[in-house]
Design a protein around this nucleic acid. Structure first.
Lengths: 346, 346
DNA sequence: CATATAAAATTAAACGTTTATATTTTGAGT
DNA sequence: ACTCAAAATATAAACGTTTAATTTTATATG
């Protein structure tokens, strides 16, 4: 079987030197159009494909985009990481017609993610990094900034220097949800949040408080829960909060998994959605339309932010200023019920 | 800043040649223990890490494992691909302490997946390939076998030559489910399956028919549905089948997503689980415990097959015979209800 | 037309590694 | 102490690419 063609093969074929071939393939202005065409033609005929390890060795370019995913442990976290597939999928789609590939670096904890990032940068194992689960004050972000390494975050932070990010507009979501529930007469509104150290959790809390105080209401901190966004966590919280003297009449869940858990709690406790309380969620899978009953959800198709993530990464590698690579998406509110309930009950 | 250390650095440091250093690092018997230790010591002190592109250029080894994932389109397929994260996660875990990485190659269709596989092999872009969604007669499998390229499949096939695979024991699952339902008095048992061309679908059908005929029942083909395993598909099928003159009293769903759709259909149609019909599912996420109501499920934690996938891949690359790398996992039946219903109704 | 200059091509070296071949060292046997 | 084979190490080339330095070729200028 014929050896895989290299630039040498093309050089021999066209009678040019490998240097010229290389330049031609890289669209260098040093080579004149006529020879360029000749090279491209030959490359096509021979079925030439760039050998990335050659490039990598010479230039340090890896054509890899590292995606750091944090999954705590194999199974306890049944639903966790569900979104990563779609995320990677969207990124892959954005870089489809480039030589870049997404390489997933799976880690078990935040600290591990930092270690992996250090190794990737130190050993130049990727051309760019994408992380999620950003914290308000995220040491990984400052590190990557110091090292001047290209990165995009899925999620915001309060880093002093601007960086490329994509996120859902969490403040906006929460404002919409709270205002809707207030207008339906709810006064005890619980919010089930992700872990407190995540920046988006903080944003949600701020928006929650702001919306309440704008309506002249005060915030009862016992209605705010923080944890890993699993169905189990949602159910736990329902169990707990529904036993309060003045239980919530509405639950805002940070994702559909948690909402499912809350609904599951309803059923166990003999509660009924729309009578005893209501649940609304934010998410990007839109699976809540199949819940029993379906619930009102702030929905943002995950394909949007994820493709943007990929696009931003390419732009960044191409030298674009991070300040131009920041985007907040505003989800649609999909009403799937009146979201009222027997408020006089309490 | 100091350059990243290479074998040259170690050679200089130890006074040896790069050749010896290389051999020492690769545990060649040609180098005597004393010098080997010296090299290892120096490597550690310098913080040396293998530069893969160097190796790759010289030997062709890529240290990449290609995972081919098929996701038809961005959003229509809301829940689809949910399992890939866990799959990749498990594989990553299995290869954690090796230099190997998982690289995801996302494609839109079966045909594309074949194309990508060809490119990977032709251009030696990976050391091994993992695919899922295997068909009974899968051309990708025969191609990889012809090319003598290492691969493991998640899912079986009826390829004549043996190959490495990991799968759930689908025949067993279906047998268990059907027997259980029959024993509860069900006589009209529907089965919602994945697409017909997938080998596991065929296995499930065979087992279904066998279990029925063993009990002296005949199979009504109108109770068998084939399609993409989304909630939407489950709901559609419920809408259709529940209108039959003799509607099913039980639905066996190939995954939890579809089961959720069926339950959602129940709610829309005013049907009740356990009164009008029951649903049971197979899956690896175990999220069905949070359904309302929770349903009986054949559960296999996806971490098991996925870690095995990674392990098999390493073994294969290490030269193990594929015939020793075949494994079927048997899930646990988790009963979450009586799974009886008003059978006299029909 | 000769010459200066710009443009286009070539040469050669380098990136980090492995490995076939060559050379030196070691140590056992006399 | 000397020989000689075996063991250990060294040399050098190669993998495919890019790029600085250099040479050749084409173009413009007076």
């Amino acid at each position: 079987m014929a050896q895989r063609p290299t630039i040498k093969t093309i050089a021999k074929e066209t009678g040019l030197s490998t240097a010229t071939v290389s330049k031609a393939l890289n669209a260098s202005p040093q080579v004149r159009p006529r020879t360029r065409d000749k090279v491209l033609q030959a490359a096509k005929e021979l079925g030439y494909e760039l050998n990335i390890s050659g490039v990598q060795l010479r230039t340090g370019k890896t054509y890899q985009i590292a995606m750091i995913t944090v999954i705590a442990s194999p199974d306890d976290d049944e639903w966790a990481g569900v979104g990563y597939t779609q995320l990677i999928s969207g990124i892959s789609r954005a870089i489809e017609h480039t030589p870049y590939r997404v390489v997933q670096h799976q880690v078990a904890s935040f600290d591990d993610s930092f270690e992996v990032i250090k190794r990737i940068i130190q050993n130049k194992k990727a051309d760019g990094i994408i992380i999620s689960g950003t914290r308000a004050n995220d040491p990984r972000i400052s590190f990557m900034q110091e090292q001047d390494f290209p990165f995009v975050t899925y999620g915001t932070s309060d880093a002093s220097a601007p960086h490329a990010f994509v996120d859902t507009d969490n403040r906006r979501i929460v404002t919409i949800c709270v205002e809707r529930l207030l207008s339906k007469g709810h006064r005890r509104i619980a919010m089930i949040n992700a872990r407190e150290e995540l920046n988006y959790t903080q944003n949600r809390i701020e928006a929650y408080k702001a919306a309440l105080s704008k309506a002249g209401q005060t915030c009862d901190p016992s209605l705010l829960a923080y944890g890993r966004l699993t169905p189990a966590f949602g159910r736990e919280q329902l169990f707990e909060m529904s036993m309060f003297d003045e239980p919530p009449t509405a639950y805002i869940c940070a994702n559909e998994a948690t909402a499912m858990g809350v609904l599951s709690g309803f059923q166990v406790r003999g509660m009924e959605h729309g009578r005893d309380a209501v649940v609304i969620a934010t998410d990007d899978l839109n699976v809540s339309q199949y819940f029993s009953p379906p619930i009102t959800t702030c929905y943002l198709p995950i394909s949007k932010p994820s493709e943007t993530l990929g696009k931003f990464m390419l732009d960044l590698i191409g030298g674009e200023d991070p300040i131009n690579l920041q985007k907040l998406f505003v989800p649609d509110l999909i009403e799937r019920g009146a979201d009222t309930c027997n408020l006089e009950r309490q």
